[in-house]
Design a protein around this nucleic acid. Structure first.
Lengths: 138, 138
DNA sequence: TCCTCTTGTTCTGTATATGAACATTTTACT
DNA sequence: AGTAAAATGTTCATATACAGAACAAGAGGA
């Protein structure tokens, strides 16, 4: 069932945004206790609420509901392409591609990155790693 | 409200597929009268039903609910890729996948990035952009 | 007209969401 | 550790909305 997926995702995205249940409830104009129930899957939000959620989180309905048909298609395409080139395929990569696709700014940077000389590319990989180290500690 | 949009779209896509209410009801394993009520907006399907609908119609949840405002820049981006570029979207994605697979360090960083709060993610996208600006000028 | 197919509507039992109040857990600070 | 405040979880009563069955209405064909 997708209700567990929805419950899990609401909590996940709320925490990724550093919001309390109270804050999220205010953004959606619902009671806080409902948020708790959504996250614990004792109740599933109706479609109006889900649309509001997708807007405040800036994601698609398919993402928040875990409706993976789109993702499965993507996976199939990749498998087809990669198997024909006899390369191994990593399902994790699909997650990354999804992330990149919904963040066009990041996508653009990776394209630019690809065009740099290899040494510069590797430097940037390292710098990025350091940056994230710092952000994780804040 | 989006419920009118949903009602309208269910009828629209059903008719585009040349299905009767009865046929659609059978595909979804619900009663036919419920389909009529969905289409006349006297009742709004719950999320489980909407997901089934998106699957039998082969469209996204955002499409069926008319939730197209969640990210207009994403839509714009897709349009740009599809219309004005010589490469197909698939090929572009494959390029990204290949690059990421070849560079496990980068892959790891993007995973870590995904787990950060949204604001930090966006900061890093920007910082990365600035970094690459500098490297391109060297 | 009669029949069939399709769609719309009413009615009823059941299920589920909601908000307020209360309970518990976690966090922050001394 | 001890305490207060914040955050989260749960219970309860009320209200809403759903699914399905039965019935009604309209269109088209023999």
């Amino acid at each position: 069932m997708s209700s567990e997926q929805i419950a899990h995702n609401i909590k996940l995205f709320r925490e990724q945004n550093d919001w309390t249940q109270k804050e999220l409830a205010e953004k959606l104009a619902v009671s806080r206790s409902v948020i708790a129930k959504w996250e614990n899957n004792s109740v599933t939000p109706d479609i109006e609420a889900l649309i509001k959620l997708s807007k405040v989180f800036g994601i698609t309905l398919d993402h928040i509901t875990g409706n993976l048909s789109f993702r499965e298609d993507l996976l199939k395409d990749f498998k087809r392409i990669y198997s024909s080139k006899s390369k191994s395929f990593d399902e994790e990569v699909v997650e990354l591609v999804e992330y990149i696709m919904i963040h066009p700014t990041l996508k653009e940077q990776i394209y630019r990155l690809k065009s740099l000389p290899m040494k510069k590319q590797l430097s940037i990989h390292q710098l990025l790693s350091n940056m994230i180290d710092q952000y994780e500690q804040i």
